[in-house]
Nucleic acid binder design. Structure first.
Length: 414
RNA sequence: GCGGCCAUAGUUCAACGGUAGAACUUCGCGUUGUGGUCGCGACAAUGAGGGUUCGAUUCCCUCUGGUCGCCCCA
């Protein structure tokens, strides 16, 4: 074994058995997005490194240590995209999409890259589906986006999904809150765990997730950002909640919800699946009202989310479905091969799945192969030009006229 | 980036420091033209590199990869 070459660390091959389930996820997402008026967009797999530094934020883990960055032959710093929102905002600005009818509603999917230690549900090349609604700050857009992800996960049948909802407020309110929280943590520094103490300045919100008793005691009396929301921020969040309730989307307010990207403002949310282990988020996102402007466009509010295809597949579990074939065209005599291929062409043209023997097997081998690939019928072409149609499930076999083959095979599809 | 566990046919598992076995899969055969079940047979492996030893799949080290957790996120 041990082939000389293997897929690079954190990457994987999608084999045919997995590809079917994967396609179903992609097709379901495309349909749900299309029904809600989100139109497909695709951006390059790599961008200027500066786009992510500015968009995602220099202090984020993604930018600090997870990007695949290299210099191209022209001396430019290039980065394989670690996420999809910044590139789409770049495209929005670059193509003057603010002149289109607002909001611009977009959906996308494809590979993303982060240099992390691989783990269950975490890869270095992974795939996301996502949507962005750019050009409106209405809570309706937030609710609609969340509903679509909820619908996608429900329609796919992802089990044990929970929606966590939070709000970061506007940037001003957020930084004021963070100062208040840091002050609270510093005041109780002695009771905190070492990890939390070291992260007070870097990421104080993480203290809410700590396991140790000391930190938990301190956090019980800590202020939460949701409590501190004021004015329009508070109204906005209240409206999002009402809209979701009215739409029958269940959620849980998580005042400690954190996102690792700097561009989020106001609404943030996360769909988690308890059955998934450490990497339990199947999808998440939020509002990013300042990003477009940050990237040089006009001030433009927006919201979006991304869902991880691998995590969805993982949550769905193994479902090895054999593709099956409507018909296999066997030949009793090699002289019939030409006719078999021609007939297969006709069946395929009629929308049926049909295969012929490509390995030069004998009749016995052809039957066996037909069984293995899940053919429901086998047409046996006789040397004299006549034909037999065999039902592989019942074993019944009778002569057929190849002129009416399509009806004979297509008639009783399960 | 940090820690734990792991690495044998395509796959799932065996082998006191002493001849690497099995099951499933694949392919072939079980007379002359018919799959599944059954029987027989064949192909096929110690991740890589060092070390200890008369001898290493087994013990030690390094690397590579996987896996789980931390961190973070999809």
């Amino acid at each position: 074994m041990a082939s000389k070459y293997q897929a690079p660390r954190g990457t994987f091959d999608v084999l045919p058995a997995d590809a079917r389930a994967r396609r179903r996820v992609e097709a379901t997402a495309a349909e749900i997005c299309a029904r809600a008026g989100y139109e497909p967009i695709a951006t390059p797999a790599f961008e200027d490194t500066a786009l992510f530094e500015r968009g995602v934020g220099r202090s984020t883990d993604i930018v600090r240590k997870e990007m695949f960055t290299f210099e191209d032959k022209g001396g430019r710093s290039i980065t394989l995209r670690p996420e999809g929102t910044a590139p789409i905002c770049r495209a929005y600005v670059e193509h003057g999409m603010h002149k289109l009818a607002q909001p611009v509603k977009l959906c996308y999917g494809g590979p993303f890259f982060r240099h992390e230690r691989p783990q269950a549900g975490r890869y270095r090349q992974f795939h996301q589906l996502g949507i962005e609604a750019i050009g409106t700050d209405s809570p309706l857009a937030d609710a609609e986006a969340i509903m679509l992800l909820a619908e996608l996960l429900a329609e796919l049948g992802v089990p044990g999904v929970e929606l966590r909802l939070g709000s970061l407020g506007s940037p001003g309110a957020r930084s004021a809150y963070l100062e208040e929280l840091k002050a609270h943590l510093r005041a109780h520094e002695a009771d905190l765990s070492k990890e939390v103490r070291e992260r007070i300045e870097l990421n104080p919100l993480r203290a809410f997730d700590a396991d140790d008793e000391g930190t938990r005691g301190v956090m019980a009396s800590a202020p939460t950002i949701v409590e501190r929301l004021q004015g329009e921020d508070a109204e906005h969040f209240a409206e999002v909640r009402e809209l979701l309730e009215a739409a029958g989307v269940g959620f849980e307010i998580d005042p400690t919800l954190v996102r690792g990207l700097d561009y989020y403002t106001r609404t943030i949310f996360s769909f988690v699946c308890a059955e998934l282990g450490a990497q339990s988020e199947v999808g998440g996102g939020g509002r990013y009202d300042g990003l477009i402007e940050q990237l040089g466009g006009p001030p433009t509010p927006a919201i979006g989310w991304a869902a991880g295809i691998e995590r969805i597949l993982l949550a769905l579990g193994e479902q090895p479905e054999q593709a099956g074939r409507d018909a296999f065209l066997a030949v009793a005599d090699p002289g019939q091969r030409r006719r078999a291929l021609a007939l297969a062409g006709e069946l395929r043209h009629a929308g049926l799945t049909a295969e012929v023997d490509l390995a030069g097997r004998g009749l016995k081998g052809q039957l066996k192969h037909a069984d293995r690939i899940g053919a429901r019928r086998v047409l046996i072409l006789e040397a004299d030009g006549s034909a037999q149609l065999r039902d592989m499930r019942s074993g019944e076999q009778s002569p057929v006229d190849t002129a009416s083959l399509i009806e004979a095979i297509g008639g009783e599809r399960p």
